[in-house]
Nucleic acid binder design. Structure first.
Length: 220
DNA sequence: GCCCAGGAGCATA
DNA sequence: TATGCTCATGGG
């Protein structure tokens, strides 16, 4: 284990972030038409409906701010389409119209429809690794989206690497993460194998990244 | 008006 | 293997 010696530093960075930002309550869930965060509660999703929301949210959040993705998710919810059966019966055109605020709406609507076609078969896969392979084989699902789904919707310990994670690594000099899998494996080898920690750590890195954005825009 | 935001797929070299 | 282009809205 080449990086074993770094265990305290990666984990202590996590604890430091947690102390300064507090639990993030990620991934948020829609209830009664409102978005709810649930700090310190890692039980979500509690049911298939909440799980489904998280998956669609992960697809909508691709290359856009969470705020825009959230608007799109709420608009699907308000149209009564935020469930597998309702969305399965909706047309691609209708979905595209509703998710407009998340950007790339035609592409995302196509990807959602494609995903829904394979979802029942995907649910039958017992092994998390096999499920990851299947997710990655679907059009429009790359490593970050696959790991977000596995971690936040299925509570499986897969560390999510995104643009903020890469910046976080560079800023703290903790690893060279040009390659997605290398970076993921670095975090996974240097943290206790607990989906709650992966969940919170990623959310905290995002919070850190947003704060950095604020600092950068103030400098301009 | 410009730039960037929590990606992914495809073509091309 | 890696680099560039495309998809597109919304907010600062």
């Amino acid at each position: 284990m080449a990086f074993r010696a770094d265990f305290p530093s990666v984990y202590s960075l996590y604890k430091k972030l947690l102390r300064s930002y507090g639990p993030q309550g990620w991934w948020p869930i829609i209830k009664r038409g409102r978005i709810f965060y649930h700090p310190k509660n890692y039980e979500c999703p509690r049911n298939e409906k909440e799980r489904f929301q998280i998956i669609i949210g992960a697809l909508l959040a691709q290359n856009t701010s969470w705020k825009n993705a959230e608007k799109a998710l709420l608009s699907l919810h308000c149209a009564g389409l935020l469930s597998f059966s309702k969305l399965r019966n909706a047309s691609e055109k209708e979905i595209a119209r509703l998710i407009r605020s998340s950007g790339y709406y035609n592409q995302k609507a196509r990807r959602i429809k494609n995903f829904l076609e394979f979802y029942p078969a995907l649910r039958r896969i017992a092994s998390p690794e096999k499920m990851r392979e299947s997710l990655l084989s679907l059009n429009g699902i790359g490593p970050e989206t696959a790991d977000s789904i596995l971690l936040y919707a299925f509570k499986q310990p897969f560390f999510v690497v995104d643009a903020y994670t890469r910046r976080f690594c560079a800023a703290h000099g903790i690893c060279h993460c040009d390659d997605y899998e290398q970076c993921r494996s670095f975090f996974e080898r240097n943290l206790p194998r607990d989906f709650r920690i992966y969940n919170e750590y990623h959310a905290l890195i995002v919070q850190w990244g947003k704060e950095q954005n604020g600092i950068r825009s103030k400098r301009k």
